[in-house]
Simulated assay, not measured.
Amino acid sequence: MSKKSPLKKPARAIRPDVPKTTFGRAEAAASLGVDIQTIDSLISAKTLRASKLGRRVLIRVADIEAMLTANPAVQ
């Protein structure tokens, strides 16, 4: 019996040649190398913009890039 991962696999893109414009919380966390709770904290603090679509929380790639631009890395 195999164990299932707690995270859902992302659905296959309808058009793989078109880049994704939104991420779910897990995808956003993976792209930034942080935990989902960190994403939730950034959304709660209004540092990262997000939208709800039904139960899903969607984060635009442009909003992730804007957050990173507005909060530069510490040298």
Rank of each mutant, 00 (worst) to 15 (best):
S5Q: 03
E65G: 03
I36A: 06
K52M: 09
S51E: 14
T38N: 05
N71Q: 07
L58K: 05
A73G: 01
D63R: 12
T22L: 05
R25V: 05
I39P: 02
L32C: 12
P72I: 15
P10L: 02
A29W: 00
R12L: 13
M67V: 11
L32V: 14
A13D: 07
T47D: 15
L53N: 04
Q37I: 03
S5G: 05
S51D: 14
S41K: 06
G33W: 09
L48T: 02
Q37N: 08
R25I: 06
V74I: 08
R15Y: 10
A28Y: 01
F23W: 01
S2V: 14
D63W: 06
K9D: 11
V34F: 08
K20E: 10
E27D: 11
Q37T: 07
K9L: 04
S2N: 09
T38P: 01
I39L: 03
D40L: 02
P72N: 10
M1I: 12
L7W: 01
R12A: 07
P10M: 02
A30Y: 00
T47W: 14
K46F: 13
F23Y: 00
R49Y: 07
V18Q: 06
S31N: 13
K3G: 04
L58P: 00
A26S: 05
A13I: 09
T21S: 09
T21R: 14
S5K: 02
I59P: 10
L48R: 01
I64Q: 05
S31R: 13
M1W: 15
A13F: 12
P16K: 14
T69E: 14
S44Q: 09
S2T: 10
A70F: 08
V34C: 07
A73F: 00
Q75T: 01
E27T: 05
A66I: 00
I39R: 00
L58A: 05
P16F: 07
A70L: 08
R55Q: 09
L53Y: 02
L32Q: 06
S5R: 00
A66Y: 01
E65C: 10
A29G: 09
I39C: 11
K8P: 02
R55F: 12
S44V: 14
A62L: 09
L58E: 13
A70P: 01
I39T: 02
A26H: 00
E65R: 08
L68G: 15
Q75L: 08
K9I: 04
A62K: 04
D40E: 10
T22Q: 10
T22P: 04
R60N: 08
A26Q: 03
K20P: 15
L53F: 10
A70N: 15
M1N: 15
R12K: 11
L68P: 03
V34Q: 13
P6I: 14
R15C: 04
K3T: 10
K9P: 10
A29C: 06
I14C: 05
F23S: 00
I43F: 02
A13T: 11
P16H: 08
P10V: 03
R56A: 07
I14W: 03
R49L: 13
L32G: 08
P19F: 04
K8N: 05
V34R: 14
